[in-house]
Structures are given as C-alpha cells and as structure tokens.
Amino acid sequence: MELPLKTTRSLTWDQLVVKALHVIRCPEFTEYNPKTGLTLPTRFCQHNIAFFDLDKEYFWRFEHSVNVISIKVAESDVGYPIKIYGTVLARDQYDYRCVYLFNRSRDNPQLLKSKKDALTLTGPFRALAVTDSMFFEVHLKIKSDDDAVDQDFSKGQPMAVPIRSCLSTVVIVYSPVPLAVQASLQVKILNGAARASCFNGKLTAWTTGNRNKITLYDSRAAGTQTQLGDGGCVALTRRVVAVPLDEGLVLKACHKAQCSHELVLRHDAERDVEECNLKLGSYELQVKVVWTAVDRQRRRKM
C-alpha cells in the first residue's frame, strides 16, 4: 500500500519503514463482519504496531480507571446451551498491553445455559488506567461436540457496545472510576480452615458511590475453584477493584441464602494494608486489602 506523499515528505527513512510495516501488519487481522456489513480490524491498531507485541501482558499503575462489571451474551444466533472459549481483553492508554478479563482454552470452555448466564471473569489482574478512552478485544469461539469446525461466536475490536458480530451480541458493562486507588483483596477462612476443604458462598464488591456489583467469588459459577489454598485462602476469581479516592469499598460475603455480612473499607494514606475479621455462619473470614495509591508520574508512552 502506498503511503500518501504529504504524510511522508518530512519523515526519515527509518520512520518511513516503521510506518510501512504498520500498514503491512494491519490487514493481518482486518476481516469482514457479515453481521454489520463492515470490514474492520479485529485487533488494536490505533497506534503504530510495527514492532508492537499484541499478546504481551504488562503491569502499570494508574490515575483514572474503570471497573468491568460483567460480560454477557445478550443474543445467541445458535441458541443455548453453548460452550464458549477464547479471550476478552482490555488495553489501556498507559501501555496498551493485554489485560485479560476472560481467558479459556478449548479444553476448558464455559457452558452458557441461557442468556441469564454471564461469562465468569478472571480479570483484570490490575486496575485499568484510563484518561479518555480504553480498548477491548473479543475473540470467542463455540466448541463443537462433534467433528465440525469450531465457529467464531464473537470477534473484533468494538468501537461501541453492545458488540454485534459473528453469531452473537455481547454486552460489556463497566463503570468509570475517577482518581482511583487499587484495592487488592485476599480472603482466608480462619476457624475451620483445617476442617473445611472448600468455601461455599459468594463474595461481591462495589463502591459507596456506585452500586454496580462485581463478583469476586461465587462457588456456584462455572469454573470457580472452591478448594481452599494454603492457610485457608479462598481462590478469588477476581481480586482487584478500582475505588475512587473519596469513596469506600463495600464487600459483601454470603453463605447460603439466610447468612450475609457487609463490610465497608476505606483507603487510608497512612496505612497501605488493612485487615479485619468477620463471622459468616460457621465460617470466620479474614479480609486483607492492599491499597495502591495513584501515581501520576509513571505514565508509559508507546
């Protein structure tokens, strides 16, 4: 593909080569979407990707953030039940690296029985850093139970939600978090940890200014590891929540329908780690929160 003269006249030879490599790479993941009738990139290419590893993960701190609440299949053209595998990932503006929200291999698909079922999210593993926009990539397939080829279920880099592609409409629900701190959670079963081998219950979180609930652990959800780890640690499916500096983090623990407990935790500039215990039926839980403060100086450019 020829580059426009007016955009190349002031570039050096090396810059021209890098620009040309970017143009060459983009068609590798540009596909026709029969559901929308458009030909669009299915992966990130808003910036030069000549030497950019699209599959590399990276950690960085943040200033503004978002919480991804849930990812649901609003419509399935092939009905239910379906076995879904693949990835849903986010890229933020600090480094554009992969931050996986959902990541399952073909050998470990998630069974969706109806449109009420949400994907069991295992990320993000860190808070997302956002200034004015964020990018998602969706690559989901249906696992075939016979010798048929697996079909693309949802694929692309959506410019808007809901995401209409292939055989589905997928909805990503998220909430903006201005001037955020990162809360990293750990939950242990104390009394009874030696007796109990698993935790049957549900843990959800939200902020005092936004009641959109984030599921951290649900023993009934597909793929949840209910077995307790070392020292009675609960294997949280998600353990990171972004919290506005001036708000609190609400943690709700449930054990069976009749037993629940809510706890409000707040960031303290003088204390980065907070621990507290609570009774939940026959369980005694220890909740530990590690707060990571906003760091405005560590923004990373491509």
Rank of each mutant, 00 (worst) to 15 (best):
T215C: 15
P109K: 01
R9S: 06
L16P: 04
A193W: 07
V73T: 05
M1S: 14
K155F: 13
T169D: 04
V234R: 00
L203Q: 08
Y94L: 11
H261Y: 11
E275G: 05
Q286R: 15
V149L: 10
Q182C: 05
K213H: 08
L251Y: 06
V273N: 09
L285F: 08
P27Y: 13
A90G: 13
F52W: 14
Q225L: 14
L21M: 10
V18Y: 06
D272W: 10
I189Y: 11
C254E: 15
D77I: 07
F29V: 00
H22T: 01
Q46S: 15
A194F: 12
E247V: 06
N48L: 08
S168N: 00
V181T: 10
L179K: 14
A50D: 03
L11W: 03
R43M: 11
L3A: 06
V177M: 00
M302D: 06
G192V: 02
V264D: 03
D107P: 02
W13S: 08
L245Q: 15
C166H: 07
H267V: 07
H64Q: 11
V23N: 00
E2N: 07
K213Q: 15
C45R: 13
S114K: 05
T169G: 01
W206G: 00
C166V: 06
H255W: 09
K115N: 11
A160Y: 09
V78Y: 06
E284C: 12
L216Q: 04
I24S: 05
D268R: 12
A118Y: 14
K256H: 09
L111Q: 12
C254N: 12
S144E: 15
M302R: 12
F125Y: 11
V290L: 06
Q297T: 14
S165F: 02
R296E: 08
A160R: 11
K202N: 05
V130H: 02
R296A: 08
E75Y: 06
I172Q: 02
F136W: 06
I84S: 03
R195G: 07
V289R: 00
T215W: 12
D152Q: 09
L3K: 03
L16V: 10
Q151G: 00
Y96D: 07
P158V: 03
C45W: 12
Y85Q: 03
I214R: 02
K213M: 13
V273E: 12
E247W: 05
K213G: 05
D117Q: 00
K301P: 03
N191V: 09
L190Q: 10
P34A: 14
Q157D: 09
Q258W: 14
I172L: 13
S105I: 11
K188N: 14
A160V: 06
C26T: 14
D53A: 09
R220Q: 12
N277V: 07
L278D: 01
Q151D: 05
P81E: 14
P162F: 06
V66L: 13
Y100I: 04
G248C: 05
V177G: 00
Y100H: 13
R271S: 10
V170L: 09
G232M: 04
F29K: 09
S10Q: 12
